[in-house]
C-alpha cells in the first residue's frame, strides 16, 4: 500500500503534465509531416490558453472556453499558413513572430479586459475541466491494488487527458492507413510529386497547419482550464519548445512521441516532488538539472551521438515550382 501511495500520485501527475506536451508534439508532427516547420507551437498554445480561460471565465463553462481556445489558435495558424504557404516566407521566422505576438497580445488583452495585472479571474470548478470519476470506481474501490489504480491513475483524469491519449492511435492510423495521411507524408517529403499527382500542395499544407492549430488550442485550454484555474502571463512557460523536442526525439512518429512526452512528464513530476529536498552530500536537489534534461537529451540526439533522427525531407522549404 505504501508503495502505491508513493507511486500512484506521481504517475497520475505524469499523465496530467504530459497531456499538453503530447497535444502540442502531435501538432508539430502533423505540421512537419506536411513540410511546414512549426516553431510557433508555444505561441499558439498561449493564445489558446488565454482565449480558453477568458471565455470560460465569461461563460462559466469549460467547453465554450475550449472552443474559443481552438479558434484563437487557428487564427494564428492561418497567419502562419498564409506566410509560409501562400507567400512562401521563412517558416522559422513566422513561428518566432507568432510566439512573440502571442506573448504580447495575451498580456495586453488580459490586462485590458480583466484588470488583474495580466491574469484572468480564477475559474470556478464549472468553468474548468475536472477529473472524471469513471463508472465503477466505487465498486472497485475495495479491491486492493486495482481499485486504487483504477480510481487515481486510470480514472481521475480530465477529459482532455483521455482525448490526448486517444489521439495517439488515431493519428498513427490516419498517417499510416488513410488517403489523407499518405498525401500528408508525401507532401513533406517531395511536394512536387504530390503536385504532379494532381493534388494541391497548398491545400494540404493549410489543412496540416490548421489541424496543428486545433491541437495547440486544446493544449492551451488544458493548461489554463484543466491543469490550472485561469490564465497567467506566459503560462505555457516553454512547453511549446519541449513539445518540439519531444517531436524530434519521437522521430516524427506518434507512438515514440507519446513515450517522449511521458518521459518528460515523469521528469516534470519528479522535479516538482524533489523541489527543496536535501540530498546527502549535494545539498538541495538541483531541480533545474531535471528540468533541463529534455533540452539536453534533444541536443544529444540531434548531434547524432545516440541514434539518428531524420526529419521529413522537404520540411522548412517553401514549395516553388521550378523552371
Amino acid at each position: 500500500m505504501e508503495i502505491l501511495d508513493a507511486v500512484l500520485p506521481p504517475l497520475a501527475a505524469t499523465l496530467r503534465l504530459a497531456t499538453p506536451l503530447l497535444l502540442a508534439a502531435l501538432a508539430g508532427m502533423v505540421s512537419e509531416r506536411a513540410g511546414i516547420i512549426d516553431v510557433g507551437l508555444e505561441g499558439k498554445m498561449l493564445v489558446g490558453a488565454f482565449a480558453a480561460a477568458a471565455v470560460a471565465s465569461a461563460t462559466g463553462h469549460a467547453v465554450p472556453g475550449l472552443l474559443a481556445g481552438v479558434m484563437a489558435a487557428c487564427l494564428l495558424g492561418l497567419v502562419h499558413a498564409y506566410a509560409c504557404v501562400t507567400l512562401r516566407g521563412s517558416q522559422v521566422v513566422s513561428g518566432m513572430a507568432i510566439n512573440i505576438i502571442a506573448s504580447g497580445l495575451t498580456a495586453t488583452l488580459a490586462l485590458s479586459w480583466f484588470r488583474l495585472g495580466g491574469q484572468t479571474p480564477p475559474l470556478p470548478p464549472d468553468a474548468r475541466f475536472l477529473p472524471l470519476v469513471l463508472p465503477g470506481t466505487e465498486a472497485l474501490a475495495d479491491i486492493p491494488v486495482l481499485g486504487r489504480v483504477y480510481g487515481t491513475l486510470i480514472g481521475g483524469q480530465t477529459a482532455l487527458v483521455y482525448l490526448a491519449l486517444a489521439l495517439v492511435p488515431l493519428s498513427a492510423y490516419v498517417l499510416g492507413r488513410t488517403r489523407f495521411g499518405l498525401r500528408l507524408r508525401a507532401c513533406g517529403e517531395h511536394p512536387a510529386a504530390v503536385d504532379t499527382a494532381g493534388i494541391s500542395v497548398a491545400r494540404l499544407r493549410y489543412a496540416a497547419v490548421l489541424i496543428a492549430s486545433v491541437l495547440c488550442g486544446v493544449a492551451g485550454a488544458s493548461i489554463a482550464t484543466a491543469q490550472g484555474a485561469g490564465f497567467q502571463r506566459d503560462m505555457t512557460a516553454g512547453r511549446g519548445y519541449i513539445a518540439l523536442a519531444a517531436m524530434i526525439l519521437g522521430g516524427w512518429r506518434p507512438w515514440p512521441i507519446l513515450l517522449a512526452c511521458l518521459a518528460f512528464g515523469v521528469l516534470d513530476a519528479v522535479a516538482i516532488r524533489l523541489q527543496g529536498v536535501e540530498l546527502p552530500g549535494v545539498g538541495q536537489f538541483p531541480v533545474q538539472a531535471v528540468q533541463a534534461l529534455p533540452y539536453l537529451l534533444t541536443v544529444i540526439l540531434l548531434a547524432g551521438f545516440v541514434g539518428r533522427t531524420v526529419p521529413p525531407r522537404a520540411s522548412g522549404l517553401p514549395y516553388i515550382k521550378e523552371r
Partner: peptide, 16 residues
C-alpha cells in the same frame, strides 16, 4: 516524381 521514403505501392496510390 517519386517519394523516396514511400513504397512503390504508396507512390502508385498517391492521388489515385
Amino acid at each position: 516524381m517519386l517519394v523516396d521514403r514511400l513504397t512503390v505501392l504508396e507512390n502508385v496510390l498517391l492521388g489515385a
